[in-house]
């Protein structure tokens, strides 16, 4: 068990250190988030729609697109210099590799999610302070579910000739529950409604995340086997 955790955390550490050194993905994802906020500002007719009313949807759409941008490249480095072969022929169980990738991607996406929330709160004058804890929990569950699915399908799309172009086609239909439950709860929480009103949404979001991680951990070995 401890050997399993050790191997897992070694991959997580490797991925995060690589990311910290190059800052490739995190920089582009952060820039994407801010620029998406700017574009959204001009895509809303503020004389008709209050930005606060649609902000939750904008936050989640930015997260989805930004997540694809970042998570789509999860296996890019490995695929390019053949390092994947090294990881997969090592005695590390395949599900540990998957879980490590999910954790590393989650850290990346969740930090971007916090940035998105902050930037959009600033841009659209959102008052997130009343339910901040719950909003952070909802974003965490949503990011986890997203990352779990997107990491599995990133491994698939990297193995095809269509590469990243295939990823949204595979992932978007599956992400509908995450968007529905995520936007539903975030919107009401930002509007200052009590948590009890969105509890069902948050529970479903949690179930979705747990199910996605479990399915990915079981199925990942069939995606990467040679």
């Amino acid at each position: 068990m401890s050997a399993y955790v050790g191997r897992l955390s070694a991959i997580v550490r490797k991925d995060l250190v690589l990311e910290l050194r190059s800052r490739e993905r995190v920089a582009s994802m952060a820039a994407f988030a801010v620029l998406a906020g700017v574009l959204f500002n001009y895509s809303i007719d503020t004389t008709r729609v209050r930005p606060q009313d649609v902000a939750a949807g904008l936050v989640w759409m930015t997260l989805v697109f930004d997540g694809l941008l970042g998570v789509g490249r999860t296996f890019h480095i490995e695929a390019q210099d053949g390092a994947m072969q090294g990881i997969l022929t090592s005695p590390t169980p395949k599900d540990a590799v998957y879980l490590a990738k999910v954790i590393a991607n989650f850290v990346l996406l969740y930090s971007v999610a916090l940035l998105v929330l902050g930037v959009f709160a600033l841009f659209f004058a959102l008052d997130v302070s009343t339910n901040l804890g719950w909003v952070l929990l909802v974003l965490a569950l949503g990011s986890l579910g997203f990352v779990a699915l997107a990491t599995l399908f990133a491994a698939i799309s990297t193995g095809t000739s269509m590469a990243e172009t295939l990823l949204p086609i595979l992932v978007f239909p599956l992400l509908v529950p995450m968007v529905v439950f995520g936007v539903g709860s975030t919107g009401r929480l930002i509007a200052g409604r009590p948590f009890s009103e969105v509890e069902g949404n948050v529970r479903m979001l949690g179930a979705f995340a747990v199910g996605a991680v479990a399915a990915g951990a079981v199925l990942f070995r069939y995606v990467v086997e040679e």
């Binding site: 698939i156 599956l174 509908v176 529950p177 439950f181 539903g184 479903m204 179930a207």
Partner: peptide
């Protein structure tokens, strides 16, 4: 193998999608 994973995950996700579109 890839297609099999797509079919399995798709079928597993359908109950979730169903609940979510009903709630929406």
């Amino acid at each position: 193998r890839f297609a099999a994973v797509v079919a399995i995950v798709g079928a597993l996700d359908i109950p979730f999608i169903h609940v979510s579109v009903l709630w929406f």
